[in-house]
Design a protein around this nucleic acid. Structure first.
Length: 289
DNA sequence: AATGCGTGGAA
DNA sequence: TTTCCAAGCAT
């Protein structure tokens, strides 16, 4: 291991022990299922918004079997406004698969986790590390940004991961299982609360001394311009509008009740929701499945 | 491999 | 006010 690896490890460990947010899914008595649920909810979603729904879900559906037995419409209502409701659908499908294929126990096996719907490389690695204390390559946007700055001296990670980046990141993961899991949690936390995308708090950073980006004077990003995601007037916005209406009532909702300027787009969005299994068409209108 | 997929809070 | 972006995944 090179010098900047060990410096990053030493500084991060002490900082995490003192400063980590008391997020509920980090409690010692959280089950692997609880960790899995948290990781799905956290995909593209800030931790602060996940806390309340995660608590509710763990009380209501404490095991995979409980969620697998729940009606889909209840699951989608409990998901509420977390966003990307397909995640809720896939989480329930994962619960079913865990019951059917793994006896109701979250598998401690990367290939088995990857085979579950809604679980990709990041989430499988995170469950291995945070639920089972195993060494894995937890590479999310936070850790990618921390390493881009600290190790490579650039402000942002590239738009897409490369094999080289994964190899480079793996070299930072400590060898022992427990050390590796703790390091991953620490690096993520640093990226989430100090080494942030927009206004990094380098003055509060425990590893600023070894940071290549800071040493270079925090040079501005020179890579390809980052594409902004459109929102106003998109199908996504329209789908969100429809889902909000469906969650708000047990009754079927006629599309004419949904205020949307483009009728063709409204029909297309509704049809897409049905295709995705997020809605059901009835003679009286649209409703949750 | 580039896109589509929700939502709300901070800057 | 607008813009940016958040513990990604599937196709």
């Amino acid at each position: 291991m090179t010098g900047d690896h060990t410096a990053l490890h030493a500084g991060l460990g002490a900082w995490f022990a003192a400063e980590a947010r008391p997020l509920p899914w980090r409690a010692a008595d959280t089950t692997p299922w609880g960790v899995l649920v948290s990781e799905i909810m956290l995909q593209q979603t800030p931790a602060s918004r996940v806390e309340a729904p995660w608590r509710e879900w763990m009380t209501r559906w404490p095991t995979p079997g409980d969620l697998a037995a729940a009606p889909v419409d209840e699951v989608l209502r409990a998901w509420g406004r977390l966003g990307y409701p397909r995640r809720a659908l896939r989480l329930r499908q994962s619960a079913t698969a865990i019951v059917e294929r793994h006896g109701g126990v979250v598998p401690e096996d990367e290939a088995a986790l990857l085979a579950l719907p809604g679980i990709g490389r990041y989430t499988a690695a995170a469950v291995l590390a945070f639920a089972f204390g195993r060494r894995s390559l937890v590479l999310d946007v936070n850790i990618r940004r921390v390493l881009a700055r600290y190790h490579r001296g650039v402000e942002h990670p590239a738009a897409h991961e490369t094999a080289d980046e994964r190899r480079e990141a793996l070299a930072f993961v400590p060898d022992r299982d427990a050390d590796a899991a703790l390091w991953s949690a620490s690096a993520m936390e640093l990226g989430a609360v100090v080494c942030t995308a927009r206004s990094p708090r380098c003055g509060d950073c425990p590893v600023s001394e070894g940071c290549a980006w800071l040493a270079a004077g925090r040079p501005a990003w020179e890579g390809p311009a980052r594409v902004a995601q459109a929102w106003e007037g998109t199908d996504r916005q329209c789908r969100g509008r429809i889902m909000a209406a469906l969650r708000a009532t047990e009754a079927a909702v006629p599309l004419t009740d949904i205020a949307w300027p483009d009728e063709a787009q409204l029909l297309r969005a509704a049809s897409g929701l049905v295709t995705d299994g997020l809605a059901r068409q009835t003679p009286e209108g649209l409703r949750l499945p």
